[in-house]
Write a protein that binds this DNA or RNA. Structure first.
Lengths: 187, 187
DNA sequence: GCAGTACGTTTCGAATTTGAACAACCGGTG
DNA sequence: CACCGGTTGTTCAAATTCGAAACGTACTGC
């Protein structure tokens, strides 16, 4: 079949730009985090999510959701964090199978110390390079792209209502306004 | 120092969207490629670059440039490709130190066979989800982001002229219009 | 020519990532 | 109570990744 719809020049540029930006930004951020705080990016994300959870603890499964890696990887990451004393494991009281990952004091401190440098790196690599309207477009467009590839997600009630417009991309960044969430709270 | 400039809501959404899109798109494309053609994405990129080069051969170093991975990784990837007979190594006639990676006939066939599915995956995951103006914005903005983080690049003469505006992002996508470059040439 | 430095590529060891297989456990059914 | 499908978290081996060190070779000045 000759019917393949190839990419035109603009689409090609978008794909290439996406690929390169992806690779370089990720590397930049990861490196800063490693050098400055001894954390990998996945590990940092785990800390952020724990810090944003009530009591600083979360079940492995809940932690895995929205954390873009496999289950076994999460086990590994939490294991590493535990080895460094930033996280502790506790069995879940209501479900013997469940394990709660708990943020330790040291973990909270580490996150607090790491956050400013991380935000600076994110700004330097991405945010401060974008014009305000570009920022909005990227948030909207890439939010849609990500949401569309999200695993089917067991229907938590009427999940049909909100389609692909916006709305969904927001449940993502919310909930972390304390230590490492990098939200607005400067002066 | 209290002076950390945190991210406001829109910037946060952009960063989160970027992260999620990055992760999911990359996984989607990689999986399609692996299942459909038995190639990893880096390997596919190597093939594309070789196919776009005169004679289907390129020096390792030239191959490494713009291929967003470390040198040692490139050695590994080419090694894998060679093991499968898609690429052959040949020592460079003008510089004994240099090694040329040469695309074999089988490699060319494999690429030709893999390209349509790959383009389809890229479309499904990213391109077809974007409005035309979003596509342009992303190409421009992310192109700038990527270019800015590009390693200093040894000054190839007057490399000062073109700053960070546009211009640079274009030398990236060009040069691959044959087999797997997915450029416009349908009917 | 000959030291000294820069370049091109690979090798090495360690860290990370993944998918598949596993063991224990929930909830509901008969 | 024993069974069954689905969940939860871990373990295992294999593949991939990286950075640093190792090598052999090219250029440079003397």
């Amino acid at each position: 079949m000759e019917g393949t719809r190839w990419l035109d020049e603009r689409q090609m540029a978008a794909w290439q730009g996406f690929l390169e930006a992806t690779s370089r930004v990720s590397r930049h951020v990861e490196q800063q985090l490693k050098e400055d705080a001894g954390l990998s990016h996945p590990q940092y994300e785990v800390l952020v999510r724990l810090a944003g959870a009530p009591g600083g603890e979360l079940r492995m499964t809940d932690l895995a959701e929205g954390l873009f890696s496999s289950k076994s990887n999460l086990t590994y990451q939490v294991g590493q964090l535990e080895k460094h004393g930033l996280v502790r494991r506790r069995s879940c009281p209501t479900d013997v199978r469940g394990i709660l990952a708990v943020l330790t004091e040291e973990g909270r401190d580490t996150l607090r110390a790491a956050a400013p440098g991380h935000v600076a790196a994110v700004r330097a690599a991405l945010i401060d390079v974008l014009e305000p309207d570009e920022t909005d477009t990227i948030a909207r467009a890439l939010g849609r792209v990500g949401a569309r590839l999200r695993p089917p997600a067991r229907n938590t009630e009427e999940a049909e209502a909100a389609e692909t417009e916006t709305a969904e991309a927001e449940a993502q960044g919310a909930g972390s306004s304390e230590s490492g969430g990098m939200s607005t709270s400067s002066s």
